[in-house]
């Protein structure tokens, strides 16, 4: 939509420009340093799920994400698969923890509530 001229893109919310759209500046370059936001997706199961079951689900997920057809389909909807070494429970816990530390104080300070 940006490439076809329907939308104007002002910035990418990351420290580095996108390889797929190198003309769009970063938020830092556009005058809003550190306005870094990433959208992540992950799989969760209820607490208490056996480790062996989590391992099986994780293995199936990594097999799916290694599939070239899957990567192509995800690229078509603008999504980038995380590197293999990050397709782990630990990496998901880490991004969740980092976002909690970043966003909870901001949301509370701005008094944002669901209505």
């Amino acid at each position: 939509m940006v490439q076809s001229g329907l939308l104007r893109a002002y910035a990418v919310t990351d420290a580095t420009r996108l390889t797929s759209a190198p003309d769009i500046p970063t938020v830092d370059e556009a005058g809003f340093p550190q306005l870094h936001i990433s959208v992540w997706g992950g799989l969760f199961v209820p607490k208490g799920t056996p480790k062996s079951v989590i391992a099986k689900l994780n293995a199936a997920t990594t097999i799916a994400l290694a599939d070239p057809a899957v990567r192509r389909q995800l690229a078509n909807i603008g999504q980038e698969v995380v590197p293999r070494e990050q397709q782990t429970p630990e990496a998901l816990a880490a991004v969740q923890r980092a976002d909690i530390e970043k966003w909870w104080p901001i949301i509370k300070a701005a008094n944002i509530k669901a209505e």
Partner: peptide, 27 residues
């Protein structure tokens, strides 16, 4: 109440508007 299984994807957002908005840059 949850156990993480796998991080799947991650990427930044683009800040965009329709071209009719009178702004040339983010500021």
């Amino acid at each position: 109440d949850f156990e993480p299984v796998a991080l799947v994807m991650s990427g930044p957002l683009l800040i965009v508007s329709k071209t009719a908005v009178p702004a040339a840059n983010l500021k």
